[in-house]
Design a protein around this nucleic acid. Structure first.
Length: 570
DNA sequence: TCCTCTTGCGCC
DNA sequence: AAAGGGCGCAAGAGGA
């Protein structure tokens, strides 16, 4: 069994071509044509795992999934790896499609990446996303040959990382990012169990019955708008318009700086309370109401699209349906299928633990050796005041300077000099225009990247100083957020592998990931395997700790719940 | 009418 | 004086 297999689907139809490769990417045989690509892939996977090398898992794996009997074990996603390598090589943001990488290799003009398909393209279905021309190969180029060539070049570039430990970590990043791409495609395919009837009942309780005329407001929301006007004694106005709201409150003698809810909550007036309530309900109606259900949660599953590496820190983004912003109140609608359960696990206080492991601050590591980190921190340095401990540490990680946080930061600096030195060094690097990297080697964008709106590199003067400090806060947080994302990706990869190894009679009964949100995972599992899954999650977390941070006393405990309904997890 | 920007808030 | 990192989404404001 070849350790790797390059794969290129035919542009039209179910066929494709394969080519076995060695680990350096050299062909071990001639290309093979398959009339039924899914069948050929399944046969090879069943004969022993290989690492599938393809242009991109989102275009390569998703069309195969419905036709495969079981999940694939491993892959190498050329587009994601190209992005990681470009960042590592100081060419952040250069085009990363297969065609772009191939053109660079051949010294040809490099095509720009196509814009990601947005909601406007939803009408086209998935044809847009999976169209072969998204690979950006020039006409006449052989896709399989391009996959083989770009992969070999990427393996060469990875091998060229001089520091052996850094090279090892980068290889882990490449594998974990690619495993994430598999998991993301699978989650989009499987969907998150979603009970429309429960959701509907919740909406009706909060908002009133679903309006029969589309576009009209639910009754309770409309009632609130009227009450609000009466409370202010003003002419009718649109409570969704901050301009009109500010004017109406001003007419009633209440000067507001904004209509943000925290400001409204400080105003002692019935109208302020009504407006806060209106905004809460309106948000649920607009963002996760009946229209959302119709668009995203049909057939008992919420099917968002996850964008692996969609955030520069390595966090995933999502497209459509706000998958990573499901309001807590709606978790009631996430219910396991009959006979199945949800294993919900989230990493407790992930980011401060990451800081402890990264900085190797012995004192902070002791507070992160288990249990409640903030409690231990409070006992050590804040006379048991947990709120102060948490506020101070979060402020240090985000670069906060406001409020009464100064004394807290001073305490932290005195007690945990290595940890504070670590984030402050990252901030200085950013302020000076440099780049920083995650533990596994994901590099942050340079200061000149126009999408960060920091092109005015002149750091003199007041505006320049503000820009530099903003950049410092970004790099300060990046090292932690991105290293936490490293750990979470390693967790996903390890967990996915363990779930794939659980003995099941029918692959349809295999426990599978259905949700991943930065530091939290949900596995949907047959009830009789729930304990095995919970154990697998715990083992995967420890494996991720070991792989990413090596020999560290820091622990990354999970709070794990086996539940029927997501809302019951905490 | 279309498009971009701003505002505000959901999640971590 | 300003004063907190990362996102996605929807609606209003306002210009072309």
């Amino acid at each position: 069994m070849a350790p790797r297999t390059a794969l290129a689907p035919d542009p039209h139809g179910p066929g494709g071509r394969l080519q076995p490769l060695d680990d350096a990417g050299a062909p071990l045989g001639p290309p093979e044509a398959a009339a039924d690509l899914a069948a050929a892939v399944a046969a090879r996977e069943a004969a022993g795992h290989t690492r599938w090398v393809w242009a991109a898992a989102d275009s390569g794996y998703a069309p195969l999934l419905p036709r495969l009997p079981d999940r694939l074990s491993r892959c190498h996603d050329l587009r994601l790896v190209e992005a990681l390598l470009l960042g590592h090589e100081g060419r952040f943001g250069a085009p990363r499609s297969l065609g772009a990488a191939w053109s660079r290799l051949r010294g040809l003009p490099v095509p720009d990446d196509l814009p990601e398909p947005g909601l406007a393209d939803a009408d086209d279905g998935q044809d847009t996303l999976f169209a072969p021309d998204r690979l950006q190969l020039p006409p006449g180029a052989d896709p399989l040959a391009a996959v083989v060539a770009v992969h070999a070049e990427q393996q060469r570039r990875i091998a060229a990382i001089t520091d052996p430990a850094a090279r090892q970590r980068f290889r882990l990043l490449v594998a974990a990012e690619s495993a994430g791409a598999l998991a993301a495609a699978e989650m989009a395919h499987d969907g998150l169990p979603w009970r429309a009837d429960v959701h509907d009942r919740l909406l009706t309780e909060l908002l009133g019955p679903r309006p029969t005329v589309p576009g009209t407001q639910p009754r309770l929301l409309a009632d609130l708008a009227v009450e609000l006007q009466h409370a202010l004694g003003t002419k009718p106005f649109n409570p969704d318009s901050h301009t009109q709201v500010l004017r109406a409150f001003a007419e009633a003698g209440i000067q507001l700086g904004s209509t943000r809810s925290w400001e409204l909550k400080a105003v002692d007036h019935p109208a302020a309370r009504l407006l806060v309530r209106y905004k809460e309900l309106s948000r649920i109606h607009v963002a996760h109401g009946w229209a959302w259900q119709d668009a995203w949660a049909r057939g008992g599953r919420f099917r968002p699209e996850y964008v692996v590496g969609g955030v520069v820190s390595g966090r995933w983004a999502s497209r459509g349906g706000g998958a990573l912003q499901i309001p807590r109140i709606l978790r009631r609608a996430v219910v396991a299928d009959p006979g199945w359960l949800l294993v919900v696990a989230d990493a407790a206080q992930l980011e401060p633990r990451v800081l402890a492991a990264l900085s190797q601050d012995a004192g902070l590591a002791r507070t992160a050796a288990g249990g409640d980190l903030y409690e231990a921190l409070a006992a050590n340095a804040f006379q048991g005041d947990r709120d102060k401990a948490k506020l101070g540490l979060l402020g240090a990680m985000y670069g906060q300077t406001s409020g009464d946080i100064g004394p807290l930061l001073n305490t932290l600096r005195r007690r945990y000099p290595a940890a504070m030195g670590y984030v402050e060094a990252a901030a200085r690097t950013g302020e000076d225009g440099g780049v920083v990297a995650s533990r596994l080697g994901r590099v942050c964008p340079p200061a000149t990247a126009d999408f960060l709106d920091l092109t005015e590199a002149d750091t003199s003067g007041e505006a320049g100083g503000r820009t530099a400090r903003a950049r410092g806060r970004f790099t300060r947080n990046f090292v932690i957020q991105a290293s936490a994302a490293d750990w979470a990706l390693a967790l996903i990869a390890a967990l996915r592998r363990r779930l794939g190894g659980l003995p099941v009679a029918d692959p349809a009964d295999r426990p599978h990931l259905v949700f991943f949100q930065h530091d939290e995972v949900i596995v949907h599992t047959p009830a009789n395997l729930a304990d095995d899954v919970a154990a697998a999650v715990t083992e995967a977390a420890d494996e991720a700790r070991r792989l990413v941070f090596g020999d560290t006393p820091v622990r990354f405990p999970l709070s794990t719940a086996v539940v029927d309904c997501y809302a019951d997890a905490k």
